[in-house]
Design a protein around this nucleic acid. Structure first.
Lengths: 229, 229
DNA sequence: AAGTTTTGGTGTTAGGGCCACACCAAACGA
DNA sequence: TCGTTTGGTGTGGCCCTAACACCAAAACTT
């Protein structure tokens, strides 16, 4: 026990709420714990923050280690510091939320995780610690955020159809949207541009493919535009 | 040094961005550090989290200890974990923001603080640590939040005039608002109720006094109403 | 080859909300 | 009583929003 301090210190961890979208419904990434309390229970990917890494770095490292995820959209969510949230000792956790395209990343469970899997948000297993509460906060944040920031594109492939985009918004907001009004507002924002390609692999009439125009969005942000869908 | 751990641990602190409103402009509460690094520099009130208190409790305790503030509106803001934000060692801080009616609380500097004072937001002194960055995040949050939640009432006395309320909104948002439109929207929300009193102490025509109707606001929230001013 | 299935794409209208805008009223002090 | 200061009130035009239904293109089936 080489590290000593004058006063007792809480341990500091990060936990990541990782959302994914498979084209039809929202999923959440969970890992099966290989160690410690709640062993073999499902939990959020996460772990201890090292003393020489930032919180963001810790979250990215844990995502890579426990699920094989890299280069995902990541944002700090909230810090949970209840006294008894970990049965071992005092642990404060900084929660993050992440957005991922499941098709882009093969899940690989390593280090402390025995498994990493996508679960439908509507049907989650029992969870370790206070992770259910953390997820509730993350869902709330996602709903609030998607209304005025185009984070939805992080969950879709680079080329997508407008129907896919609308289905995603409906999954997150939990309401049906009108197709014509959705497109009208979307085009008014001018952050998607049509490609020369159409979608071929599914039944029915092929759909125009679009891409997100990040540079145009950046310019919008600078001029302080307000939008929602 | 009685407390030892297998791995090194970051120290955990809380810092509070305390906003006040004196009827004309927004103020920020700062303390003059009595100890340690940045001694005699102005800083946010805050300090170390004890191992057996929650983050919220730590924030409230520090506000009471360093400035004599109690029972204020308090909300977690963001957690800052850059490696070198404290010159001594690795310190992670959970920032809070608080809303206070300056007239309700006499400032009392105790423990680690040599002084506690209100500063106009537009004219802050040089600050310790990364506190200037924390304040910037807090101002952004305050602006965003006041649009869709009636937190402004936390900054006003229990009885207030509509002109006072509007002046507060203008101070936070940094824009002028139209008096008639402001009142129209405010009355539409139905969260203020007129009192039988009028204001007498100032020149000019006396103004009707109002109070915030918290119970009506709670009912609104339940029915999921969306509003902004 | 014709019909069926599946998904894609488009325009109009009515109503509500938002913003701009100007004048009279009440109290006080000189 | 006149001037100064602050308080309080209503209308109209415009824009944005939400509601709404049909035809088009491709693939598959028979």
């Amino acid at each position: 026990m080489p590290h000593s301090y004058e006063y007792p210190r809480a341990a500091l961890t990060v936990d990541c709420v990782v959302f994914g979208f498979d084209g039809a419904s929202l999923k959440l990434l969970l890992i099966k714990r290989g160690l410690g309390p709640f062993k073999a229970k499902w939990a959020l990917p996460g772990g201890f923050v090292r003393v020489n890494e930032t919180l963001d770095d810790a979250a990215r490292r844990e995502l890579a280690e426990e699920a094989g995820l890299e280069k995902v959209y990541l944002e700090q969510l909230y810090t949970f510091g209840e006294l008894k949230r970990d049965p071992r000792e005092r642990v404060v956790t900084v929660a993050y939320f992440a957005l991922v395209r499941p098709a882009d990343h093969a899940l690989v469970a390593t280090t402390d995780a025995d498994a990493a899997e996508w679960f439908p948000l509507a049907d989650l297993p029992a969870l370790a610690f206070d992770h259910a509460a953390i997820i509730a906060v993350a869902r709330e944040r996602l709903r609030g955020k998607i209304r005025y920031q185009p984070i939805g594109f992080e969950l879709l492939p680079p080329k997508f159809t407008l129907t896919q985009l609308q289905t995603l918004y409906e999954a997150i907001l939990g309401v049906m949207l009108d197709k014509r009004n959705f497109r009208k507002k979307l085009f008014a924002i001018e952050v998607v541009t049509p490609l020369d390609e159409i979608r071929r692999d599914v039944p029915g009439r092929p759909a125009q493919l679009y891409r997100f125009d990040a540079s145009r969005y950046a310019r919008l942000l600078k001029s302080g535009i307000h939008f929602e869908l």
